[in-house]
Structure formats: C-alpha cells, structure tokens
Design a protein around this nucleic acid. Structure first.
Lengths: 194, 194
DNA sequence: CATAAAACTGACTGATCAATCAGTCAAGGA
DNA sequence: TCCTTGACTGATTGATCAGTCAGTTTTATG
C-alpha cells in the first residue's frame, strides 16, 4: 500500500472516531510513521484529505450496494426489503467507521458549501434510498407491499433503520438487540393491510 | 435577563449551529456584547458552559414532555402514540436548535466521560422513549396496539421519528413532507395484525 | 456618602495546529 | 557516474483560541 493510501486510511479512522476538527494531522502522521509535512506533499489541505476519505467510502459503499440486490433471487419484494434491512445492519457492524463518519455533522455541513462533498454524500444516501425504493416497487408489483409513494416509504424505512444504527454509534443501545423488532416493524408497515 | 443567561442563550445557539469546537468564546462574547474574559467570570470553562446549556435544554424538554400526555384524554393508546409523534415533529420544528445540538456527536462523546452530560442526555432520551412506551402499553391494554416488548417497540418508533427529524437537521429532506407517511407507518407497525 | 462585593474589562499567555519551505535522500535511467 | 525526479523531512510560521490576571467600574447596602 502506498504512503498516500496509508494516510487516507489513518485519516479515515481518525475523522470517524474523533471528528474532523478533533483529529490532528500530527496524529495522522504518527499513525503512518511519517513526518507531518509529508502529508502536505500528498494532499493540499486537511479538507482535501477529508474529501478523499469520503469519496473512497462512497465508492466502497456503492460497490457493496450494487451486489445487494443483484447477487440473488427473491421470492417477492418484501423478501428484498428484509434482505436490505439485514444488509444495512450488517454493513454498519462490519464497517462502523463508515457510519460514525456519516453520522457526524461535519460532512453534512461541508456538503452545504462543497460540491465534491455534496456529491459523495448524496450518492450514498440516494444509493440506499434507491435500493429500498426499488424493493418496495417490486413488492407493490407482486402484491407483497402496500400501495402508495414508494419513495416516501423508502425514506421512512431508511430513517428507521439508520436511526437504529445510530443508537449503536452513539452507544445508546445495541442495534442487534432491536433486530427482530425492527424487522417486524418493517414488515408491518409495508405489508398490504389484509 | 441576566448576563449569565444571555451567555447561555448565545452559547446554546452557537453550539447547536456550529458545534462545540467550531463555536469560539469570542463569538459568544460578541453576541452578548461583553468582553471575552467576562465569560470566564460567569463560567469556569467552555465545557462547563456546554454542560449548562445541555442541562437547560434537558429541563425545558422534560417540562414540555410532562404536558404531552397529561394535558388531554385519549380514546385509545394508538391515539396517544399519534399525538406523541406529531408533538415530537412539532417540538423539532419550534426548537430546531435543541435537535441540532442533540444530533451532533459531541454530546454523546462527552457523555462517555462526563457524568453530568451523561445524565442530561440520558434523561432526554429516556424521557421520550418512556413516553412512547407508556402510550404503547396503554394501547396494548385497550387493544389498539399489538402485543410484544413495549420498550423495544418504543425504541424503534423513536428511532424512526428521530430519523425523519434528522433528515431535516441535515438538510436531506423536509420532515413535514414525510408527515403522512410517517404517521401511517407508525400506525401500521403498531396496530394488531387483524 | 462610604465601602464592600459583584460585574466587568483589556492585555496577555501558552498551547495547539494547519500549512510552508528549503533542503535531503533514494531510485532509476542515460 | 551523474542527473533528474518523486518522496520525504525538520524547522518554522502565523493564526486561533481557551483561559488568566490585575485592575476598573457598577451596584447594593448600611
């Protein structure tokens, strides 16, 4: 792995666990066993590093998202949705730093003034919501999901699932303990009303 | 209003809109038309100000929460839940700074090492979740809500509602536009399955 | 009015940290 | 061997900012 990638990895970890302002370049330098000044040979500014980190997270997430619905067959749309919810929780468990970073305010505030940041963030959120929306539409066609705006339903489901993940991020409650309840709620709110 | 309260108000605004590290005491001083040093006559450290801010928010929130279920009669538990969801959205709309502050990572990270912060945060979250839990229990008794762990159901509902509020905070989507869908999802996931 | 306490101020300090820069070092090609 | 180029470094700078302190002003009280 190149030094540049090492720096990115270290910065990703520190930005996620400590926050943008709280993480110092000196720490990144220490973690990568390099001089602080070398970081600015590879990157122009601290913010540039953050943008690069966010972009790699976005790329990695999109790659994982792609395989979520394409890898297998589903008996109906509802099964797709269950799979997505489980996958989201799984992704959050195996990549906690991604979600710690996304659950911080900094990226959202930077997005308001920085197009590159805005694009990465939007791609991630739209990616997930699109997945849920696709699954809901499929379910509406095969009759396993109730009618209504698929987009809005997708957003509410996403809000719920991400809300539970956030309980984990903020150490309020273990997400796994809510798994069954979450999945059940998801089914109830989407299934046709008998 | 005393200078001390003015400082608290200004700090509350800045901590909410900019974040703890990003808000400087010089700004607080400017907003309250006082010298920077005077702030440290009223408070020992910046962190103390944050704790005081969080405590007043907690107190104000708990006061509002108390009146939520006691002010009126409900025909059934499900109506209570609907009322709580609507009230939560209303509270977020009329006090956006409260939720901006709570949706930041800083308070949760400080809570890990500071008992006062931990108490305030826990009181707020437990307060809300207790309200939902009470409503769900009431609904389970009168038959308007399905059986199962009231606590877990309350947490999932809270995660969903707060997740939607967060869309607002982070400028991802207007919460009001999801109101109907949110309320409907809430009803579907809690009502007995026919 | 006198006086003490409370409120407030301006100048300063020490620490932190992103960013710069002039220069060193190592690898590879001619 | 020399030279070029990219990777890397140490020393430094300038800005920011929480917090201090010695001293002044305001307010309340007897």
């Amino acid at each position: 792995m190149s030094k540049k990638d090492e720096i990115l990895r270290a910065a990703a970890y520190l930005f996620a666990t400590k926050g943008f302002k709280e993480a110092s370049m000196a720490e990144v330098a220490a973690m990568t066993a390099t001089a602080g000044s070398n970081i600015f040979y590879h990157f122009k500014t601290k913010e540039d590093i953050f943008l690069a980190v966010l972009k790699t997270i976005k790329d990695d997430m999109l790659t994982q998202m792609e395989s979520l619905l394409s890898d297998q067959q589903f008996t109906c749309g509802m099964r797709m949705i269950e799979h997505l919810v489980a996958s989201y929780l799984g992704m959050a468990e195996s990549n906690p730093n991604w979600f710690m970073l996304l659950h911080r305010s900094y990226p959202h505030e930077l997005a308001a003034v920085n197009p590159s940041c805005r694009e990465s963030l939007a791609a991630i959120y739209e990616g997930f919501i699109d997945l849920f929306e696709r699954a809901i539409r499929a379910g509406q066609e095969d009759g396993s999901v109730t009618k209504g705006s698929a987009r809005k339903k997708a957003m509410v489901v996403f809000a719920m699932v991400d809300g539970v993940v956030r309980f984990d991020t903020h150490h309020l409650y273990e997400a796994g303990a809510l798994y069954d309840e979450l999945m059940n709620s998801c089914q109830c709110m989407l299934k046709p009303s008998a």
